[in-house]
Design a protein around this nucleic acid. Structure first.
Lengths: 108, 108
DNA sequence: TTTTATTATCGTAATATTGCAATGTGACAA
DNA sequence: TTGTCACATTGCAATATTACGATAATAAAA
């Protein structure tokens, strides 16, 4: 065992889970937060901002990218990262919908 | 290694990460979705809805609860579950803020 | 061309997660 | 009191994640 049975769930549920899982780590939340704070794309000075080794940061960036939360484009010898708005829109809409439906429930 | 260095990050980042991580699994997204669909609190028929064993569902519910995403109250010999609005509000506000700040950036 | 800067990848160790069968527990019913 | 229902917990195997040092890889600078 130890394998998530993704094929048993709907496409939508898997899509949401992938995005949320990618952000479900304080380092990755911090990375997103930094990308947001500095405005525009950033040519990775993230290693200096976080208390993690370069290899670790690189790994976290890879996960964020493969989940579709950030984009990275090569700029000379460094790489510019920025948040992918689409993913944020998806997640915001998701929680908005939940909140809306919750308001129609009269419980708890 | 293999341990998340949570103490190295801010309280806020950890708080968000805990919530997102808890929802970062298709089964748990599906559970939330079901709780939402049936309206009001639900006396756990979740096992019948998902393709997972009872022990596994119980574990997922425990994680959702300990992260603060759902509440459970004993009702005779079964348990009524419902989504904790506070957590949803937190997450919705979080993504709303990101989206808002993104709009002020002119990049990508 | 050699060096330097920036990022990625590999290998590895420590730990966490996922999933389930089996078993435990507490409330109600018979 | 014995059984049953609804969950929780335990114990385990399989796999995933986190973190980092060492080592590529690539592009610009000297």
């Amino acid at each position: 065992m130890g394998v998530t049975k993704s094929n048993q769930f709907t496409k939508k549920h898997n899509e949401i889970a992938v995005l949320l899982k990618a952000m479900g780590h304080p380092a990755r939340v911090a990375i997103m937060s930094h990308l947001l704070k500095v405005q525009k794309c950033i040519c990775g000075d993230i290693v200096n901002e976080l208390p993690l080794a370069q290899a670790t940061i690189s790994q976290h960036l890879k996960e964020l990218k493969s989940a579709g939360l950030i984009k990275g484009s090569i700029e000379g010898k460094s790489i510019c990262y920025c948040i992918d708005e689409k993913a944020i829109n998806t997640l915001k809409a998701y929680f908005e919908t939940i909140q809306f439906k919750l308001n129609k429930n009269n419980c708890c």
